[in-house]
């Protein structure tokens, strides 16, 4: 009897402590975004969202996120495939290198991209006579996002590939399937879960990327300003209502993405 009530008491305590800790740490800041966004009433919120600069920033961010996800889905899966199925000298070093972007501060990524591709950069200098200049253009933003989000796809796909029994592949080869057919019909279906998880993570991260983007975008309104940069610029200019309206939209999008991610992950677990 006493044991049971003590057990109950001991679970109520840690739970309330957890909530108390999380409240100011996570929950209240999230709520504040929405509270401040709607402070001026729904009309002002709507006007803020509809301003051409805000619309551009949102669309541009989404577009970059889609493009980043598409490119990294292919590139990340290919990398995972090579690293998982082939043994070659330096494969371990390469495995570490491709995961580096998570460890490097994003601002550093931005600086290094500038120093490489910028007009005074190592490779950028050679591009200038050709009339090419990737930095401060949408393409520069895409480059930065590809770099920063590269490990997500890889991280989601490679473990699945590593775990997969090679017998299926071998069976496919014995009945004369080519490498591509094997990949398409045997590996890809198994990778579905990893691909979706990786894509959602990449998309969400790209949507919110700030550190590298602020360095390489040039922050041009209606040209290269992503939604997070727009929020920062509005906030710095003291226009907190505008900043928060877009922040609320971004937060909502991210929530939706993570909702899908969780639903998906839990369903996969149930299936397994």
């Amino acid at each position: 009897m006493t044991g049971r009530s003590a057990g109950r008491g001991s679970s109520a305590l840690p739970v309330s402590v957890l909530v108390l800790v999380l409240l100011p740490l996570l929950l209240m800041p999230l709520a504040a975004v929405f509270v401040f966004a709607l402070k001026g009433g729904p009309g002002a919120f709507w006007d803020a969202i509809r301003s051409p600069e805000a619309q551009f920033a949102l669309r541009f961010s989404l577009l970059v996120a889609f493009a980043t996800t598409a490119v990294n889905a292919v590139l990340g899966t290919f990398t995972a495939y090579v690293l998982s199925k082939h043994r070659f000298p330096g494969d371990r070093a390469l495995g570490v290198v491709v995961n580096l972007p998570v460890a490097i501060p994003t601002v550093v990524v931005g600086t290094s991209l500038l120093l490489l591709w910028g007009p005074i950069g190592l490779l950028g200098k050679m591009l200038v006579p050709l009339g090419l200049q990737p930095m401060f253009r949408p393409f520069g933003v895409l480059l930065a996002h590809l770099f920063v989000t590269f490990p997500y796809m890889l991280g989601a796909v490679k473990p699945v590939l590593d775990e997969l029994e090679t017998t299926y592949e071998e069976a496919a080869y014995t009945i004369g399937a080519t490498r591509w057919t094997t990949f398409r019909l045997v590996l890809l279906p198994a990778l579905r879960g990893g691909l979706i998880t990786g894509a959602l993570l990449t998309f969400a991260h790209s949507l919110g990327e700030f550190g590298a983007t602020v360095m390489v975008s040039g922050n041009l309104r209606l040209k290269t300003q992503t939604a997070p940069l727009y929020i920062f610029a509005q906030f710095e200019a003291g226009d907190i209502a505008h900043a928060n309206a877009i922040a609320a939209v971004l937060a909502l999008l991210s929530f939706t993405i993570f909702f899908f991610l969780f639903r998906f992950a839990s369903r996969e677990q149930k299936a397994a």
């Binding site: 005074i120 930095m135 040039g218 922050n219 041009l220």
Partner: peptide, 20 residues
């Protein structure tokens, strides 16, 4: 007009780095 506003030093460095 396509415009960008920041601290004067920031703008200067951006222009040196090649913003159009």
């Amino acid at each position: 007009i396509v415009s960008s506003f920041a601290g004067s030093g920031t703008v200067t460095n951006q222009i040196i780095l090649g913003v159009p």
